[in-house]
């Protein structure tokens, strides 16, 4: 009887190759810039369908089920397949060293990740993009704004993790 072994993670260069190639491929086939975070506006519209806010009523969000919506659904499916290929648990509330070290009750984790997500969504819109739109797509196109944004992303991400280790995990 053959036993099924989960696949190993990809080496970094393989990920870089595939993710990087998406930038020109999306332009070549669909004339679209790689990016994810604008699509959260679709979900915001789904959550508040009667909103009067002008930004959520702009042309980009005239239809909720648009190309960005399909792309996000695709990402969920792709990651679902990858998770099964790598033998990850189908449903878990664990978040690596964070939940292991801190052992917070579930509502504590929920509040923390809700807050983190809030800052991600807000920051990405103010900066004009996220890790894919700015750091991959924008830097591959040598945009100055993407360089500024990426430096801020990395610097403040590192400062935040440092603060988590000092103030929450009790030392470095």
């Amino acid at each position: 009887m053959t036993q099924w072994f989960p696949a190993e993670p990809w080496p970094w260069w393989m990920g870089g190759l595939v993710i990087g190639a998406l930038v020109p491929l999306l332009y070549y086939f669909l004339n679209t810039a790689l990016g994810v975070s604008t699509g959260f506006g679709n979900f915001a519209k789904l959550l508040f369908p009667k909103t009067k806010l002008s930004w959520l009523n702009s042309k980009s969000f005239s239809s909720i089920v648009n190309h960005r919506f399909y792309m996000m659904i695709g990402m969920l499916i792709g990651a679902f397949i990858a998770g099964r290929v790598m033998g990850l648990p189908v449903a878990t509330i664990e978040m690596g060293v964070f939940s292991e070290t801190l052992q917070w009750p579930i509502w504590g984790n929920v509040l923390w990740f809700l807050m983190g997500g809030f800052l991600l969504g807000l920051g990405a819109r103010i900066a004009g993009g996220c890790t894919s739109g700015h750091s991959i797509h924008g830097l591959a196109n040598f945009h100055l704004s993407s360089l500024v944004a990426t430096i801020c992303f990395l610097l403040f991400g590192a400062v935040t993790v440092f603060a988590i280790r000092v103030f929450l995990m009790g030392g470095v």
Partner: peptide, 11 residues
């Protein structure tokens, strides 16, 4: 925006 995003990323 980048700073706000960075904190969210780290959190």
């Amino acid at each position: 925006g980048g700073m706000i995003f960075g904190v969210g990323w780290g959190m």
